[in-house]
Nucleic acid binder design. Structure first.
Length: 564
RNA sequence: UGGGGCGUCGUCUAGUGGCAGGACACAGGAUUUUGGAUCCUGGCGCGGAGGUUCGACUCCUCCCGCCCCAGCCA
């Protein structure tokens, strides 16, 4: 009955879920989970998974758990747990009180391991890691049975119990599932379930010296939590037979694993391991560096969570491997910001302008629209005076073709203010323009000429005596190649493709005074320049802005084409 | 030469035997007090070959290409 009102499935996973709902496969329940390993910060790839896991639950009136897949104490840390929770909440999802840990289930997992041993389906193996590898065979050649494969149930029970008690050194024994050493699927060649590892776990401390592997922990955790649909990425596809094997041989609740293709973004890396390298080797300043594709970095950069969600919805869910163009992400950011970010004027690279015929000491308060896309955002006053700043790039002594902005003898509009005409240029020794002298037309107040005279350009500006100083950080893509893992030379890796000009730090930028109350995290459109966000490094005395993304820039394209 | 997947505009993605649609990108135009936004227009695609069918992106066969798997990582 409810189904009728539901929108059509938008991807193959929703189709499966709806089919399961129709056939009451899980008594009409939908219960998913997001299972991050707390070994790094969440990135845009995780965002896709989060949107799918939580999104499916939301759409079908189900639940989505947060479960930390913490089975490897050597690389997991509490700080990552904290950041992951913060980032999921920021993205806009809520797991309520369903915060779980695979380590919560160590006891149950141990009991189930005993169960499998008793069923003759698991055994303790004394082979070394290297020997196990040799015995496993290759992709094309079958493996061989370990000499310890035929131990009696009693012996296995005793050995495994002693493993748990800490009677054997690290790495000396493992517990393996007894499946099929000749299976075409390598995962079925007697996979390891437990390894001996004396490491302090961030939650269980030193309680355990044996730790379950992913394969042994994951499906069983899903089962314990009553998960119905266990969604994961493609590389786990050939783990599914093992996932099924454990659950079937245990005879417990059996969720369905469904795999989808993970997100790849051009000019971006989405590998926790590689991102950690960028952090640890100082290519960026931290996990939350605004150039990082981490949620923390994107948040600091100014990406609205809504835009990331819209992006994830916009790219779809499928099994084909793909690389999404970064332009698509930027589109969703601009789309959201255009509708929501208040407009403001700021000059990044100031060029002084003196209005010769404007009275000295006079200041006017001009009306400016806060957002032309949303009248309800109202208007504000912007001060105008005789001395102003405009953008250096908005003046050319010798304007190229199609350049509409200011040049000697040219008239342009100052947004919300007056038409001004350039009458003189003062230059320094190097011939660089350092000050413009202009005249204004008092009859054009507000920006319209009563005689119907047109100008081709409208410039943003800031009143010099009223301006506040700020620092601005401009970001470019972190990598110079669309596919950062593609490298020319031998022995090189993605690090060779890091863009040395990914960060440009500007100081002495001039902003309109209304920004003096801007709070950390606030997002604005600097008219004609782009969207900017107040960085946490801002202080009361000095604001720092991050450019989230530039505006679409038609002139830049024309100019680029002109240069050839 | 083992097992598991995947191939639809430049990039994503819809399609479930009946005119191949959408988004982004790109190109052109209209409009504009942001060279923004908006609107219009345009080009561009079913990996290949056979077969079944009145009709095939869809079903069958073969071929080609790409990805994943030989951690006591997840």
């Amino acid at each position: 009955m409810q189904e009728d009102r539901r929108s059509k499935p938008t991807n193959f996973i929703e189709e499966i879920v709806e089919e399961d709902l129709r056939t009451s496969k899980y008594e009409g329940r939908v219960h998913t989970r997001f299972p991050p390993e707390p070994n790094g910060y969440l990135h845009i790839g995780h965002a896709k998974a989060i949107c799918i896991d939580f999104g499916i639950a939301l759409k079908y009136n189900g639940l989505c758990n947060l479960r930390f897949d913490d089975t490897n104490p050597t690389r997991e840390e509490q700080q990552y747990i904290d950041s992951i929770k913060e980032d999921i909440r920021w993205l806009g999802f809520d797991w309520k009180d369903r915060e779980y840990y695979a380590s919560d289930y160590y006891g149950q997992l141990y009991d189930w391991a005993i169960d499998l041993i008793k069923k003759g389906k698991a055994y303790v193996d004394d082979l070394s890691a290297e020997q196990i590898r040799e015995y496993r065979g290759t992709l094309t050649a079958p493996g061989r049975d370990s000499p310890f494969r035929s131990r009696t149930i009693e012996e296995n029970l005793e050995l495994f119990t002693r493993m748990r008690k800490g009677e054997f050194p690290d790495g000396s024994k493992v517990l393996r599932a007894k499946i099929d050493m000749s299976a075409g699927n390598m995962n079925m060649r007697d996979p390891v379930m437990y390894r001996i590892l004396r490491a302090t776990h961030h939650r269980t401390g030193d309680e355990w010296c044996i730790y379950p592997t992913y394969d042994w922990a994951h499906g069983q955790s899903d089962s314990i939590e009553g998960i119905t649909h266990s969604l994961c990425s493609l590389e786990f596809e050939d783990h599914r037979p093992l996932y099924d094997w454990f659950l079937d041989n245990l005879g417990v609740h059996h969720p369905q694993q469904i795999e989808f293709s993970r997100l790849n973004l051009s000019y971006t890396i989405t590998s926790t391991r590689k991102l950690r390298k960028l952090v640890e080797e100082g290519f960026v300043k931290g996990w939350d560096d605004p150039r990082m594709p981490t949620l923390a970095g994107m948040r600091r950069r100014g990406y609205p969570p809504e835009s990331i969600r819209n992006f994830c919805e916009g790219i779809g869910v499928a099994k084909a491997e793909s690389v999404i163009e970064i332009a698509k992400l930027e589109h969703f950011v601009r789309d959201y910001m255009n509708r929501n970010a208040p407009r403001v004027m700021g000059v990044l690279r100031p060029l002084k302008v003196v209005i010769d015929n404007y009275p000295e000491g006079k200041t006017e308060e001009l009306d400016a629209v806060n957002n032309p896309e949303d009248e309800s955002m109202g208007t504000r006053k912007v001060p105008f005076s005789r001395v102003l700043y405009i953008e250096q790039d908005d003046f050319r002594e010798e304007p190229p073709p199609k350049y509409y902005r200011l040049a000697p003898g040219r008239e342009v509009r100052l947004r919300y203010a007056y038409f001004v005409k350039c009458v003189d240029v003062k230059k320094n020794k190097d011939g660089k323009a350092v000050e413009l002298r202009c005249t204004y037309d008092p009859k054009t107040r507000g920006g319209d000429s009563p005689d119907g005279r047109k100008v081709k350009a409208t410039l943003h500006w800031v009143s010099a005596p009223d301006a506040i100083d700020a620092g601005v950080r401009l970001y470019d893509r972190l990598f110079t190649r669309g596919a950062p893992d593609e490298v020319d030379g031998e022995g090189k890796d993605f690090r060779a493709n890091v863009n040395p000009r990914s960060l440009e730090v500007l100081s002495g930028c001039k902003l309109e005074p209304s920004l003096s109350t801007a709070r950390v995290g606030s997002r604005y459109q600097f008219e004609r320049l782009g969207y900017f966000c107040v960085d946490p490094e801002s202080t009361e005395r000095s604001l720092v802005f991050n450019r989230t993304v530039s505006l679409r820039d038609t002139w830049a394209k024309i100019e680029k084409a002109q240069r050839g």
